[in-house]
Amino acid sequence: MRKSTAPIISIADVKNVLGKQVVHEHLNLDIMKGEITAIVGGSGCGKTTLLRNILMLLRPKSGSIKIFDIDILHCDIKTSQKIRHSWGVLFQHGALFSALTVLENVQFPLRTFTTLPPKVQKEIALLKITMSGLPLEAAFKYPSELSGGMLKRAALARAIVMDPELLFLDEPTSGLDPQSAGAFDELLLDLKEGLGLTVVMVTHDLSSLAHVSDKVVFLGEKKVLAALPLQELLKQKHPLIQAYFSGSRGESYVKSA
């Protein structure tokens, strides 16, 4: 089931222009089913922009993007809606609904897209909340009453509540303490194991990269410089890649990895 060779997302020759700035040009990327793909690169190199392309929030200037072999830039509303139901998204800044409690936030997709009885919805939502590592007391709090790390976890719970085939995570471990970041890595591996989930995550967390990623996509110079497992990526001679991993923080991980 895992490690099939068909790409679940394939991006070809994408160009993005934001304002006057060319963010991506001739960007190509394939994401395989059942893999955890990490996207890395310096701040502002366009990782979030690429995710927004895939999530149909931002139309690239040119190029093509296919998900499940469907061209998402030229498909009808019904198809795109179906694709939207098959993924879960964790935004960089959480993006929880501020008027709803955590429990209601997590329950929201269940209430909107399933016919499960309300009691079951609530139990499933609570299950996801504990799976994401939030204490149960947090379930009845509003997003404004949570700490930064708790917000991240609540947003994660909302992203995984429908058990999506595809999970997009934008910096899931930033703002988490090391222990919770570790627990998060474990959760991700468990989900991948149990559900055959495909994960695309943007991260700057080197230990997360080393621990969970099957493949690391390095963005730089407006395109994908390399898409390789971490070990092989570290051997690349490209100066940007060398620079990224050779900072004082990078060194220790490179050695331990």
């Binding site: 609570l126 299950l127 149960l136 009845f140 149990g194 559900l195």
Partner: peptide, 22 residues
Amino acid sequence: EEHTALFQMVEAALPEKQPRPK
């Protein structure tokens, strides 16, 4: 194997008590 792993994961994560809103 996968289903067993999933089942165990859910069992482990299950909240013991039902929280009540204040």
